[in-house]
Design a binder for these strands. Structure first.
Lengths: 202, 202
DNA sequence: AAGCCGTGCTAACTTGAGTCAGTGTAGGCA
DNA sequence: TGCCTACACTGACTCAAGTTAGCACGGCTT
């Protein structure tokens, strides 16, 4: 969908399906920055920076609406509120990246996994694709590894531990919260950064 | 300057001095998200999200211009170009956090350190506070540790290694690039994400 | 049916980074 | 003058996570 170094393209709003954005390192390893689910904006940085600094790839089949560069910039000058709205979306995005940063910097593998799957759960619930019980999740353990900065082997270990602790089960494409409260406690999860509903747009 | 959970405050533009923004975890450890140097915007997310999701603290004595919430939002509607400019600044900010994310996720301690100090160098050069030789840097090894997701002890080890390899010396508040090219190579550093000069503002 | 992938899963071994526990030094201040 | 604190620095030990090398299963293709 988008490739590092590519110049001049559109942004998209995901209608259905999952995508992921990532960076590749010279060493060949990659770091997944985030996953995009329905309702998410995608490629804004690529427009503002003219040339993309990361890649975006579909995980499942994705349907998305294209937002052309010219259209977006025009719309900004015509309806300033839109600019504010987009700015707000970008900020929420950054808040997620920051939380992800804390994951990688100061949480161990199990806490990271728990925190990550909880966040994903909240985001999916906001678009009606999950509930407090759990959700359908098409991510392989390899994808999780690249997102959480772990090896696939360790992802597997950690998932087993969380399952054995009776907190969370992730098998056959389904995440099930076995003990939601314990999990939230364990991960130190605070959803505040996700559910601001755009206070400036009231 | 800003505290997690605090409601309704201003943004700032740093005129002189260094500050850092960070998150605290229940466990007591902290993750530094980034350092703010002269010219940097600060606290934008706190305005957009009404309540701050992180803390900001001065490192040295800081002089900054306050930008009041009302003023900023007003200005957006009156001069849409300003909104675009701020959006662009926010995007550059996010790009830095993303690069930091890659640091923590997929680079080992030494690469992380090298990459981080190179980035800081480029940013400081952009505001005339450093050159290809090096720069003055008031960060203690404890601050570096909290930024890079390492222990202070390991920061010390890594700095020694880089010094012994003849790539970089960081002592007595001074970063000296002993072999800039080798360092760039070693860290896999690409400055592209830093020096876009706001193409939309031409 | 046979052969492949992609994925999940595991055990055995290695290693990078953390922890603990300490030394040395420079600056501030009582 | 001596004390105290912050910071840089180190060695010895531990442990979380990576690496390697595999097995097992289900869905594809030919």
């Amino acid at each position: 969908m988008i490739h590092q170094g590519q110049v001049g393209h559109s942004a998209y709003i995901v209608a259905s399906g999952w995508a992921c954005s990532y960076k590749l390192l010279p060493s060949g390893s990659r770091q997944i920055i985030g996953f995009q689910i329905p309702g998410d904006f995608l490629g804004l940085r690529a427009i503002l920076f003219r040339t993309a600094d990361h890649n975006v790839e579909p995980i499942t089949r994705v349907q998305a609406s294209e937002v052309k560069e010219d259209f977006l910039l025009d719309a900004f000058t015509r309806t300033p509120r839109l600019a504010t709205a987009v700015l707000w979306a970008a900020s929420r995005d950054e808040a997620m990246v920051v939380e992800h940063l804390v994951d990688l910097g100061r949480r161990n593998a199990a806490e990271r996994m728990a925190h990550f799957l909880l966040e994903l759960g909240v985001r999916l619930r906001l678009v009606g694709m999950g509930d407090r019980e759990g959700y359908l999740c098409p991510l392989s353990q390899y994808l999780l590894a690249d997102a959480l900065g772990l090896s696939a082997v360790h992802v597997n270990r950690v998932l087993r531990e969380l399952r054995e602790e009776g907190m969370l089960t992730f098998q056959k494409g389904k995440v099930v919260f076995d003990d939601y409260d314990a999990l939230v406690e364990f991960a130190g999860f605070h959803r505040a950064y996700l559910d601001h509903d755009g206070p400036l747009l009231r």
